[in-house]
Computed example of a mutant assay.
Amino acid sequence: MAFASLFLFSCERDNEHDVAEPMAVNQDDNLIGYDPTTCNLVQSFGEGTLPRTADVIEEDGAVMIVKAQKRGNNGKYLQETQALLLDAHDPATDLVNRMDANMLAMSGLLTVGDGSGKQANRKGGRLILDFSPVSTVTMKTMVFTDIAAEDKGSKVELYSRNGQLIESKEIPTGEKNSTVIVSFNNIPGVAKAIVTFGDERSTVGSGAVARLQLCVEGQGRYDDARYQDVHTLWLEYTGQQPANVTVKSKQDGQRGRGNVIFEAKGMKPGTMFKIAATEATALGEALQIETQRREKQLIPVNADPTASLKKQYGNFRVVEARCTDYPLKLEE
């Protein structure tokens, strides 16, 4: 009887081990690196068998056009092709280790193909993610794999619909087939993202995108009132001519010039810029925006639940304002 019990216990342990499966994708805090304010999670990159090529990806309410380009020996990029989606759990993919694939609940890996339709390109290239089908998005985080030492100089760039470079971040390197999570801290108005694998002066570079966390324009939860001070403000200059722009922090009743917290010379129409409070910089009761043409606009940023921020102040459009983790609703 003792032998039989030991045998049965051993079988039960084996069966438990056999049924272990990769972590299921779920939109909650159990997903490592997940931002709970995410509106649209792109992690399987659509439906279909892997590997496969793709030029349009639709998942969880997000839609994007994707293109891939290899980098030639002269540093110039070759003709655009479809991007390649590989299976994160297939050892032949060789872009992520099994532990990371399971722990981060990966499914598809978006990369630049080598032309075979089954392997990633290793000689440098880039992915172009075009969000124009949904207008723009607020970018939260991106997850990358296989950005090793030889891929140093890999980067991701975010562009507005006017073609302005809003943000550029170098992707940190790690061990081969390891994973890195890059946070963008809620950058709104992103119309296009370009991911470059390897230094652009090099003929070496590979990697993949494993996850996108974002909010499609018009989606997500909004705060109805300013119960707290505004801590982050994204603005767009909508004037017709380039302008010298100065932003000052003003206190209630202050008669002085105010503290200058942002300056830009020759700002082009369509330019987006960010104003954010820090430990060293307070936004005060209001922001005063001035141009060399004697234009002055006052934007209240203090806590005031009885008043809404407007979408437009003269030649400056409020793209997004936040006093909590969520954007404020703006008055037409």
Rank of each mutant, 00 (worst) to 15 (best):
T53R: 10
A277K: 11
Q79Y: 07
S178R: 04
Q240C: 10
L110D: 00
K67H: 11
M64D: 00
A101K: 01
I32N: 09
A83D: 02
L86F: 06
T179R: 10
R161Q: 12
L6T: 13
R126A: 02
E331A: 09
K268V: 15
M106I: 08
L127E: 00
V143T: 11
L110Q: 00
G284W: 01
G125W: 01
V25K: 06
S107L: 07
G174A: 07
A92F: 06
A208T: 02
V190L: 02
L50H: 02
K123D: 12
Y237D: 04
F197I: 02
L41P: 03
D94V: 03
G124F: 00
C39Y: 01
G124I: 01
K155V: 07
T136Y: 04
I187Y: 04
G113E: 02
M1S: 15
Q228N: 15
D130R: 09
K176P: 03
I32E: 11
A92N: 10
K296W: 08
L104M: 14
C323N: 15
D55R: 13
A191W: 03
M267K: 04
V319G: 01
S116D: 06
E47V: 15
V112H: 00
A264G: 13
K169S: 11
E59W: 05
A191N: 05
L214Q: 03
T278K: 14
H17Q: 14
K176A: 09
L8Q: 14
I147Y: 03
D28F: 06
D151W: 04
A148M: 09
D325N: 12
L86W: 04
Y77E: 01
A208N: 02
T291Y: 07
G220A: 07
E16N: 15
K152R: 15
R52I: 05
L85Q: 04
S308Q: 15
K70E: 09
A148W: 08
M142W: 00
S44T: 15
A54I: 03
A225L: 11
Q219R: 14
A208C: 08
S132P: 00
E175Q: 14
S5M: 14
Q119M: 11
K155F: 13
S116E: 06
K250Y: 08
K250H: 10
V204Q: 12
N244A: 13
D28L: 07
D146H: 10
T281H: 10
E21Y: 09
R211V: 03
I65L: 14
A4W: 11
P133C: 06
L6D: 13
G239N: 07
D35A: 11
N102M: 03
